[in-house]
Design a protein around this nucleic acid. Structure first.
Length: 424
RNA sequence: GGAGGGGUGGCUGAGUGGUCGAAAGCACCGGUCUUGAAAACCGGCGAGUCGAGAGGCUCCCAGGGUUCGAAUCCCUGCCCCUCCGCCA
């Protein structure tokens, strides 16, 4: 959520900045509602004030043994008036809240203008895509050849967009998780976290998936409530600080977590239908940082480096792009995507996304820390990034490390996690 | 699933219808004292929101209700603790 003070002070400026994200902020409707809100709120609060004052007088009168009947008569009509005012205020506030909860974060000045992913801007490249002296296969063909990556069985068990892995490939998949967690905890200073894979509505509101993007989520009815399968560890991990005043001395908080992620991919029918690139269920090792406001831009660069380090250790060629306004996520002020080279597709594909949410999530979460100078609680900044998406990393390893006969070299960094196996 | 006890400020914890946003302690901040620190003593100290300000309003798990007035009474839900049962 944006700072309502800023929106009120200059709605036109906010609207203009949101244009970069191709979001049309309804300035007129907002101003209209704001004016009404102000009016009704003042009226309501005046009535409340009157009620409070008179109730106190009644209390005093009663204590001193006076007759309170005349005083009671005076307040008789107050209740109805107050109820009416309150109801009106509630309606206006609800509409304003709905409006503001649906407004995305303002993109940072450094975010390039653009429509979609084609307008993202490359920041740097690392490594050189390997040149093959044979026709490289994609991971689906490789997996089939090994008999260890099976989409048809998964479709029988569940449906499309799931995978069954067995044997060495299943182990390689697991090795990637362990490897990444170890790097993040021992080399990058993250604290490992284990979190629920189902969350409540409040958590999803806190990080911004709700109320707007419910159709992307898998819902789990539970009694008369509703839980949701997490679409990313960002949700449970970032919500650790919801409604908390964090001890400033403990900042920055740096968490890493391995979780499965569940996405309905509602808007992606027909997109990436082959293989493991876009699944309803996939694993991810996530990085989350909760930092003091002034530190978040440095943290964004740092976290991008942490994700890159994994790819470098795996010796997988990649490039880093900065997302343009049109491709930027709802809660994000700035996002870097890291794209890994996939020989099977002959192009770079997203394998990590690192975002600075500034105070946008923190405001919804009420995640604060006391400023040591002033003693006052101030909003924190939250960031998250994949470090990395496991399924896509597996795809990258299979495709980049394939041999002419279909065997897969095991990257050196993963060999300790594969019991010393060098080839599968 | 059954029985009971609880959810109050950063923390511990008092408060069972009125002058309670809320005792006390801890923590924290300022001061006195001290070469410095500690201790002791004095003072300050919840959050959010509206307002230029004075000040107002809201918040004692959440949502309803009773009442002129609710932290306090009633209803529903959620969460935590103890015991019994079941269980990976």
């Amino acid at each position: 959520m944006l700072d309502t003070k800023i929106v009120r002070a200059n709605p036109e400026a906010v609207a203009q900045q949101l244009e970069k994200k191709h979001f049309a902020f309804p300035v007129e409707r907002f101003n209209e509602l704001e004016a009404k809100r102000r009016e009704v709120q003042v009226e309501t609060e005046n009535l409340q004030n009157e009620r409070n004052t008179r109730s106190k007088m009644i209390g005093k009168a009663k204590a001193s043994g006076e007759d309170i009947q005349p005083l009671l008569a005076e307040v008789a009509s107050l209740g109805d008036k107050l109820d009416a005012a309150k109801q009106q205020l509630n309606e206006i506030s609800a509409e304003l809240d709905d409006m503001l909860l649906g407004v995305p974060n303002i993109p940072d000045e450094s975010v390039p203008f653009g429509e979609d992913e084609d307008d993202n801007v490359e920041v740097r490249q690392w490594g050189t895509p390997r040149s093959f002296d044979f026709e490289p296969q994609d991971h689906v063909a490789l997996g089939e050849q090994h008999g260890e990556l099976d989409f048809e069985t998964a479709a029988k068990l569940t449906g499309s967009r799931f995978a069954v892995m067995t044997g060495k490939i299943a182990r390689l998949h697991r090795a990637l998780i362990q490897f990444m967690l170890d790097v993040q905890t021992t080399e990058h200073g993250y604290t490992e976290a284990y979190v629920p894979y189902m969350v409540n509505e409040d958590s999803l509101k806190g990080t911004g998936q709700l109320p707007k993007f419910g159709e992307d989520l898998f819902k789990v009815p539970f009694g008369d409530r509703q839980y949701y399968l997490i679409p990313t560890a960002e949700v449970p991990v970032t919500n650790i600080v919801r409604d908390e005043i964090v001890d400033a001395a403990k900042l920055p908080l740096k968490f890493t977590a391995h979780t499965p992620c569940f996405r309905s991919e509602a808007g992606a029918s027909g997109k990436d239908t082959r293989g493991m690139i876009r699944q309803h269920q996939f694993e991810k090792v996530e990085m989350v940082q909760v930092v003091e406001a002034s530190q978040s831009w440095a943290a964004l660069e740092e976290m991008t480096g942490h994700a890159e380090a994994i790819l470098q250790k795996l010796n997988l060629p990649y490039r880093v792009v900065v997302l343009c306004g049109g491709d930027l996520g709802f809660s994000s002020a700035k996002t870097y995507d890291i794209e890994v080279w996939l020989p099977g597709q002959d192009k770079y594909r997203e394998i990590s996304s690192i975002s600075n949410m500034t105070d946008f999530q923190a405001r919804r979460l009420k995640a604060r820390a006391r400023n040591p100078e002033t003693g006052k609680p101030e909003l924190l900044h939250t960031l998250n990034g994949s470090g990395l998406a496991i399924g896509r990393t597996l795809v990258a390893v299979l495709e980049n490390y394939q041999q002419a006969d279909g065997r897969i070299e095991v990257p050196e960094a993963l060999q300790p996690y594969m019991g010393g196996v060098t080839e599968i």
